[in-house]
Amino acid sequence: MYLLCTIGASLICFLLLKWMKRRRLCMDIKRLDGKTVLITGGNSGVGKETAVALAMRGARVIIGCRDPERAEKAVQEIKMRSHNLNVLHMHLDLSNLRSIRDFCHKFLEKEQRLDILVNNAGMPSVLDWTDDSFSMCFGVNHLGHFLLTNLLLGLLKESTPSRVITLTCSVYKFQKLDFQDLNYNLFPFFTYCRSKLANIYFTQELARMMEGKGVTAYSVHPGYVQSNWTCHYSILFRMLMQVVMFMFFVPCEVGAQTVIHCAVADEVTQHSGGYFSDCRHIALQSISKDPGVAKKLWEASERLVGLA
């Protein structure tokens, strides 16, 4: 009797976990032949799975990565899995504004078009600083992608219809932006939440500015994904999180589905500036729906990265 109860409880737990991890898949089969895609952090995790999926559809895929060795290894894997040889990497360090400018200069020299920009790379909640003295989360997750997108915006407009997809997270709702201290780095998790809220406001303001110009923008929560973000922490924490991720998080290829959906589906264009999760447009909480805050953040970001 005890054995039967144990087996029954285990089965129920297993089914419950499967139900909690269920996700929609992108069912759109659109091809991307002749299109150019740039994915930051495309050497691992959701970024790499997105690169594979878009390369399989015929796109020219460029991944931006700061580690040439890891990038080249990822490129070979993406080519093999997608059967597309038109995949390459370029050096990009989002924690260094000079590196971003150098990358964009080289990209604009080499590339004739940019149809889809996926701002995928990100830093977890770590207490660290960028080369330009910004908190690592805010500097990489928001400011780095803000500068990158702005420097490539001219090519995006020339390549219309084009799309900008920025990965965010549902933890955006736990913090507000403090314009007296955007570089807040006292509690790393709070800094991470603010950077993800900034991603959403950035997407909204970009969509407003590009309205009628052929460039649409989307923020995407890929879900909680079994990626390598724990590499920034101690061995003990990594071991603990491996168990948690196995039980509750989804594989990277599943996490990439909403990014792919926003890259190819025609239906998303009516929601430019919107927030997507599980291949659906999701209503945002009130904390992230103030157009005045979005405009103020854009102007503050311009000053911080030297665009103003």
Results as ranks from 00 to 15, higher is better:
3 L>W: 14
6 T>E: 13
9 A>R: 13
9 A>M: 09
15 L>E: 04
17 L>K: 09
19 W>F: 13
20 M>K: 14
21 K>G: 10
21 K>D: 10
22 R>N: 09
25 L>D: 14
26 C>A: 03
29 I>P: 15
29 I>G: 15
30 K>Q: 11
32 L>M: 06
42 G>K: 02
43 N>S: 13
49 E>S: 12
51 A>P: 11
55 A>F: 07
56 M>D: 13
63 I>C: 13
63 I>P: 04
65 C>D: 03
67 D>I: 04
69 E>T: 15
69 E>N: 12
84 N>L: 01
85 L>I: 06
86 N>P: 08
87 V>L: 13
89 H>A: 15
89 H>I: 07
90 M>P: 10
91 H>D: 14
95 S>Y: 02
96 N>W: 01
98 R>H: 15
99 S>L: 00
99 S>C: 00
102 D>A: 00
103 F>Q: 08
107 F>V: 04
109 E>C: 14
109 E>P: 12
114 L>C: 05
114 L>G: 04
115 D>N: 02
117 L>D: 01
118 V>G: 03
118 V>E: 03
120 N>D: 07
123 M>G: 09
123 M>K: 14
124 P>Q: 07
125 S>D: 11
132 D>G: 02
133 S>V: 07
133 S>R: 10
135 S>H: 12
142 H>I: 06
143 L>T: 01
144 G>S: 05
149 T>G: 02
152 L>H: 02
156 L>G: 01
158 E>I: 06
164 V>L: 04
166 T>D: 06
167 L>K: 04
168 T>E: 06
170 S>V: 00
172 Y>E: 03
173 K>L: 13
174 F>V: 13
176 K>C: 13
177 L>K: 07
181 D>W: 05
182 L>F: 08
183 N>H: 05
183 N>V: 08
187 F>E: 13
192 Y>L: 03
195 S>F: 07
201 Y>N: 00
204 Q>D: 03
207 A>P: 00
208 R>N: 07
211 E>G: 08
213 K>V: 09
216 T>I: 14
222 P>M: 04
222 P>K: 08
223 G>Q: 03
226 Q>K: 01
227 S>R: 03
231 C>M: 14
232 H>K: 07
233 Y>T: 00
239 M>F: 15
242 Q>C: 15
245 M>Y: 13
247 M>W: 12
251 P>F: 09
253 E>A: 06
254 V>F: 02
264 V>E: 06
264 V>I: 05
265 A>P: 01
268 V>E: 12
268 V>C: 05
269 T>G: 13
270 Q>Y: 08
271 H>E: 11
275 Y>S: 05
278 D>I: 00
281 H>E: 10
281 H>M: 13
282 I>Y: 02
284 L>R: 10
288 S>R: 10
289 K>D: 14
289 K>M: 14
289 K>A: 14
289 K>E: 13
293 V>I: 06
293 V>Q: 07
296 K>A: 12
302 E>W: 12
305 V>D: 02
306 G>K: 02
